[in-house]
């Protein structure tokens, strides 16, 4: 798998070596994610069920995860290098960090009133893990993009771009709102949700407008290859893989808005800085 990743990255680095460059910009970018949508593998109603042996005969049923939609307006940081080929074509590489949280939802057989009465009699807790488990994600990523800027004589110039991103999972853990007294149950559930790949690839495409060294872009990002470690087992109905090798995550797509500012620009032909 790692070999595939490296080959793909090499292909996207290729333009840097074959084009005849002109300007090189180093800049800072921030981006927000107004929508991130995660879809899951779907299972039969009696397939992905936890029958816990406790006093309430608690049954947790992942009747196919419900699609998770989250939004984040945290300005994630990014550092980029942009290479302008002529007045219209550009290539860019960046490094960014992002973090997010979402919920894997399920159905709980216990009545909420009974559940809340047992774990939250004073209604002080925010999240009881009654019918969802909160997942907290943290990534570092980098991406390579190529774009085309229109209207080279105008001051404000629209542009389109596309490329590939690689996300490196730094951390995945359950949310910290749950009662410690549910740790055994929650850990059993989470253990089987911990199937997200450490390196995942996405393609991205979008459009934006540019004003001198300032750019505002909107782009869509979607996974390029499988994102679950057990994706190859999705068609395998072997009973022993029900809990241990079950794939969960099917796809992730997101809409992002970015604001970029060139901090340093170099004219590679004249070998001098413009700013």
């Amino acid at each position: 798998m790692k070999t595939k990743v490296i080959i793909l990255l090499l292909l996207f680095l290729l333009p840097f070596s074959i084009v005849y460059g002109q300007f090189l910009h180093i800049g800072l970018r921030t981006f927000v994610t107004p929508l991130q949508k995660t879809s899951f593998y779907q299972y039969d109603i009696n397939d992905y069920v936890y029958y816990f042996a406790n006093e309430y005969n608690e049954t947790i049923r992942f009747s196919g995860f419900e699609t998770s939609e989250t939004q984040s307006y945290i300005p994630f940081p990014s550092l980029y290098i942009r290479y302008d080929k002529g007045n219209s074509l550009f290539f860019e590489a960046d490094i960014f960090a992002t973090w997010t949280s979402n919920e894997a939802k399920y159905k709980n057989s216990v009545d909420f009133s009974d559940y809340a009465n047992a774990f939250n009699p004073d209604s002080k807790l925010e999240n009881l893990g009654y019918n969802s488990i909160k997942l907290k994600w943290a990534y570092i990523g980098n991406s390579l993009t190529a774009g085309y800027v229109f209207f080279k004589t105008k001051t404000i110039r629209p542009y389109v771009f596309g490329g590939i991103s690689a996300y490196y999972l730094l951390s995945l853990k359950p949310g910290d709102f749950y009662e410690d007294t549910r740790s055994v149950r929650n850990e059993i559930i989470f253990k089987n949700l911990n199937t997200f790949r450490t390196v995942t690839l996405y393609y991205k495409g979008g459009l934006g407008i540019k004003y001198h060294g300032l750019s505002l872009g909107v782009y869509l990002e979607k996974n390029l290859l499988a994102i679950d470690k057990n994706a190859d087992n999705s068609d395998d109905d072997a009973p022993d893989e029900i809990y241990n090798s079950r794939p969960n995550y099917k796809s992730i797509s997101s809409i992002n808005i970015s604001l970029s500012l060139n901090l340093l620009s170099f004219n590679l032909l004249k070998n001098q800085s413009l700013k």
């Binding site: 790692k2 680095l13 490196y168 730094l170 995945l172 450490t198």
Partner: peptide, 18 residues
């Protein structure tokens, strides 16, 4: 870019389970 990739990939640690 490659060094960054290798570095990032090594950062992930599996959660500890009982």
């Amino acid at each position: 870019f490659f060094f960054v990739l290798l570095f990032f990939q090594s950062c992930y640690k599996e959660p500890v389970f009982t």
